[in-house]
């Protein structure tokens, strides 16, 4: 299972790409595989303020539904309309076209690096 080195992660199986104070967030390939085919993504509204650990959306597959948790404190600045229209992108391209939201980070949070996340999911 691919765990790109250039991203950071949470124990909730989200990835975060930081660019200055803008964080792009998605769910990992591991999470997508565990969920199965994603058929519905509900995302927060642009402008929403979120705090680390807040449930701010939902990801639903044929088999189950799971919450999307805010990985950092911040304000939602963009959501991926393409993934709302085609939720399968979460499975097929989790680290690129399947990104979920962008937020402007306002606080610090402890994130995992790729090695720590790989250990968390059982390594390869």
């Amino acid at each position: 299972m691919s765990v790109p080195d250039n991203l950071q992660y949470t124990a909730e199986h989200e990835w975060i790409a930081l660019d200055g104070d803008i964080a792009t967030v998605g769910i990992t390939a591991f999470a997508g595989e565990a969920l199965g085919d994603v058929v519905y993504v509900e995302l927060p509204a642009v402008g929403d303020a979120v705090r680390t650990g807040d449930a701010c959306g939902e990801i639903e597959s044929t088999k189950s539904v799971s919450d999307l948790f805010a990985p950092l404190d911040g304000e939602i600045v963009e959501i991926n309309d393409a993934v709302v229209a085609d939720p399968g992108l979460v499975n097929t391209d989790p680290y690129a076209a399947g990104w979920l939201l962008r937020l402007r980070v306002t606080g610090e949070s402890a994130l995992l690096d790729a090695a720590a996340y790989e250990t968390l999911i059982g390594g390869e």
Binding site: G36, D37, V39, S61, T62, K63, N91
Partner: peptide, 11 residues
């Protein structure tokens, strides 16, 4: 086996 590739494709 819970799925091989895609649940929807298998369905």
């Amino acid at each position: 086996p819970v799925r091989y590739t895609s649940d929807i494709a298998e369905h």
